[in-house]
Design a protein around this nucleic acid. Sequence first.
DNA 1: CGGGGCCTTGATGCTGTTCAAATAGAGTGG
DNA 2: CCACTCTATTTGAACAGCATCAAGGCCCCG
Lengths: 219, 219
Amino acid sequence: MFAAIQTFACEADASPAPTGSLTDLMDQMGVRMPFSRNEEIYGQEEQAEFIYRVVEGAVRTTRLMTDGRRQIGDFYYPGDTFGVEPVSDHLFSAEALCDSVILVAKRRTMRDAGGGEMDRLIWRAASHDLRRAHEHVLLLGRKTACERVATLLLSLSDRSCETQVTVPMSRLDMADYLGLTIETVSRMLSQLQASAVVEFSGLRDFQVKNRQALARLTQ
Amino acid sequence: MFAAIQTFACEADASPAPTGSLTDLMDQMGVRMPFSRNEEIYGQEEQAEFIYRVVEGAVRTTRLMTDGRRQIGDFYYPGDTFGVEPVSDHLFSAEALCDSVILVAKRRTMRDAGGGEMDRLIWRAASHDLRRAHEHVLLLGRKTACERVATLLLSLSDRSCETQVTVPMSRLDMADYLGLTIETVSRMLSQLQASAVVEFSGLRDFQVKNRQALARLTQ
DNA sequence: CGGGGCCTTGATGCTGTTCAAATAGAGTGG
DNA sequence: CCACTCTATTTGAACAGCATCAAGGCCCCG
C-alpha cells in the first residue's frame, strides 16, 4: 500500500519548499498521525484550529453539495502544507488519498512558541493555494475535457523525478478535480494514449511520450 | 515581515471591510487614479509592486488564453482591495468595469511607513480572494448554467442595500466569469424572469421577486 | 431618424453526460 | 497458485445541455 507513496516522498521539490526552520518548528510542535485511505483528516465546516503537512502519502480537499455532487479543491503531496483556510471554519474537508502520515500542529501553540515562523508558514501555504485556485478556475471555466486531463497529467509529470509517473488518485478523484465524469476522463486518457502523447503501463502508471504535444494540449 | 498576520490568521472575519486605520494608511500613501471603462489597471505578468482599492466604480480581473478564450477571476467593488497576488507577478490583469477611481499605493512604501498595517491589509485581501476562488471553483466545476447565473444574481443582490439591484457588468463579463457564453447567460436570465424569481426593469437593473427560490437555485 | 453596440431569441450541432454492459485488477480464501 | 468476488475502469450508444451560428430587437446617442 505504501509502495506508491515512496515515489512521491522524494518529490517534494515542486511544493512550496519548506525551509529548515519551518520544518523544524512543525516537527517540534506537531504530532505525526497516520490516516488510512479515504479517512477524513478534517471536515467541512469544522473549526480551523490546526495546520497540517503531508509527510507520506497524499491528500485531497473536497467539497460536497447537498445532492452529492463533489468538487475536489486540490491535491497535496509530501512537503505540502494544507488546511490553511483563511477564515475560522473550513469550506472544504480533507481526506487521505491513500494511507498517509500527516504532521498536525495546533496553530495557537505554534504561534506562541515560534515567533513569526507560524505566520510565514501560513502565508506561504495560503499564497500557494491562491495561485493554484486561480489556475484551477481557468481550467474549469475555459478548458476542454482533453486540455483538463492533459493539464493534470503534465502537473503530475512535473512533480515526478522519474520518467515513470505514478497517478496517486482514482479516476473519480481526477474527474471531481477536473469537473468531469469518470467516463470522460477515461476516454481522454485513452485518446492521449492513442495519439502517442502518453503511455500507460498500468492503471496508475504512465510515461510521457511526447512532452511538447502534452504541453501544447494544456494550452 | 508578516508578523502582523497573526491577528488575522485566526480571525473569523475575512470581509474586505476596511477598518479606519487601514483606510487611513492607504489614503495617506496612495494616489487616487481615474480609469475609464475597460481601461487596464495592471497587466497579466506585470510585476506586482502595487496594491489597489476601488474607491468608485468596479473592477474585473481577467486572464486571456493564447487563442482568445477569456476567464474572469473576480469582480471588485468600492471598498475592496485587489492586486494582492501572492507571488511576484500577476496571473490575471485588472480592468475597470466602468469609469472608476482606484486608490493605488506602492507596497514597499506602505510597508516601510505603516509597520504591520500593510501585512494585515494584504493578508485580509488574500484571504478574501482565496475564499472567493474556492467558491468559484465549485461554481465552475459542478454547477449548472442556471445555478451559476442564480449564484451571481444572489451575490449581487446581497451586496446591494436597495431592493432594486444594478448589474455593473455586461453579459460578456458575466459569461466569462461563469464559464458560459453570452447566449446561455441571456437565456438563463430570461428563464429566471419567466419563473418569477427575478424581474428585470432594464438590461442592468433587476429586483429579486422570490429570494427563497433564488437561494435554492444556487444550491 | 438612423447607426452601432449590446442583448435576446431561434435553429442546429457538438461536447460531455448518462445509462448500460463488458473487461481488467485487486483482494480473499481454498 | 488458482478460482472467485468485488470494485475500478473502459467502452459503446443514446441523450442533454450548452455552444455556435444566424437573425432580429432594443436602446443609447448623435
